[in-house]
Every structure is written in C-alpha cells, then in structure tokens.
Amino acid sequence: MRRTAQLALLTLALAATTTLARARLEPEAQAASQVRNPAWLPDGRLLRAASFGQRLVVADLYWLKLVQYVGETVLSKTQRWDALYPLADIVTDLDPRYGYAYEVAGSDLGGVAHRYDEADQILLKGMKNVPDRWMLPFIYASNKFLFEQDYATAAAYARRAAEVGNRPHLALLAANLSALVDTDQEYGIALAFLDQALAQAEQPELREQLDLRRAKIRTYQVLSQLERALAAFRRDHGRQPIALGELLGRYVASIPEDPSGGELVYDPIAGTVQSTRIGPRAPIRVTPK
C-alpha cells in the first residue's frame, strides 16, 4: 500500500515536472520554427528533386510556413518581409501550378511589404506557369496602378486579365487606366478593347456600362487633343485663345464634336475645355503615400 502511494506520488511529480518543462520550453520551440534568415531557406529546385515524388505535399508544407510568416510579420509590426519572396519562390518551384500562392504572394509583396520588384517577379512567374489564371495579370495591373503609377503597363495587364478570364467587365478598368496614360495611342487601344468587350458582353447592364465608358474615353481623347493644342497655342502666343476657332489651321484641322452627345465648352479665362455631358477630363488617380 505504502509502495503504491510512493509510486503514485512519483508519477505525479514526474507529470508536474514534464508540464512545467513543456510550458517553459514552448516559446523557445515556437521561436525555433520561425523563419528568421531567408538565406537559410533551401533552393526550391533542389528541394523538388529531393522530394522523391512528394513535391506537392512539400509545397503545401512551405505554403503553411508562408502563411504563418505573413501572420507573424503582420502581428509583430516589424515590417521585415525579406523571407516572403524566397518562401513563395520555393512553394512555386515545388508546384509551379499553385496559382493561389502566386496571387497571395504577389498581392502581399506589393500591398503589404511594398517590395514591388519581388511582387513583379512572382506574378510574372505565375503568368508564365499558370497562363489561364486571370487574377495574376489583374493583381499585376493593380500593383502597377496603385503603387508604381505605371498606368500603361497597368492598362495592358488589365486587358490581359479581361482576355484570359473572359471577363469583359475588366475592360472598364483597363479603359480607366488608359485614360490615365493620356496618349492618343493608348486611347485608341482602349477604344478597340471596349469594342471587343462589347462584342463579348451579353448582360444588358454590362453593355450599357461599356457603351457609357466608350463615350467617356472617346470624349477624353478629344478633350486631350484640344488641351494639347491649347497648350501649344499658349506656348507660341503667350496668351489663351479667345475661342477654340483660333486653334484652327496650325493647331487642329477642325473643331471636333462632343462624342458623348453634349457640347464642348471652352473657358477663355482658365484656358480649359470640357464636355457639357461628361465634364472636364478627370481620370481617377491614386495619390501614393
């Protein structure tokens, strides 16, 4: 009886020591599993060869590590994102078709980590390996628009996203981005793409939106041509023209009609021109932080 009690006491003491040791060691063990130095991460191609046919499940393990890394970095507010691209590169070397990994890494590297070159690299890799995933050119276009103000590239990739995903509504976004580029050539591309989207679109609401956007882009194109002519006139004469008619000949061949169905109104004091229907040329702009 006494022996049993002693044994029970010993068991309890051992269990208590184990629990205490575990509680004390747990933070250390958790810290050990964190990715601190990306230089310690293996090469994805080597890992793929060494995975002995289990590359998909190994990709999943590294994906879970990436998710954990993003969560920890956000919570710690350290803004050290140097392991995000290497982790995403490993995951996508192991499974080049892992479209969702490219999407998450591309948008986090751009929008959260502000590492735009790395965001570009992972998204371009994704577009090469998963060409039918429309979200990848869409995220690429968003990064170029929101963070780099590279509107021409953003417009080109928005059009690519619309084509790849067979999503004519993305032509609306692409047209807005083209309006930011503000060149005759880009307006021409945007109009051609809106025509293409109109041919694909079946829903009446979308067709109406595309029609309206087409009229807006065409009006912006005309307003932009007049604005350039007005600027050239000011440069040559040192004053604003009294009326648009003064531009005829040297600056414009003819005064165009308002493509949106309204009228083009010129303000000789401010030297600006606008449409009575669409208003002034004012593409949506995002101010970088």
């Binding site: 998909l56 499940v57 999943d60 994906w63 879970l64 998710v67 969702y100 998450v104």
Partner: peptide
C-alpha cells in the same frame, strides 16, 4: 491552418 484552397491540402 491554411489560407484558401483547403481542398488541395486534403488531397495531397
């Protein structure tokens, strides 16, 4: 534990 596409983890 993952973010999106849980199906692939179960299948893999």
């Amino acid at each position: 534990l993952t973010l999106g596409e849980q199906y692939r983890i179960i299948a893999n």
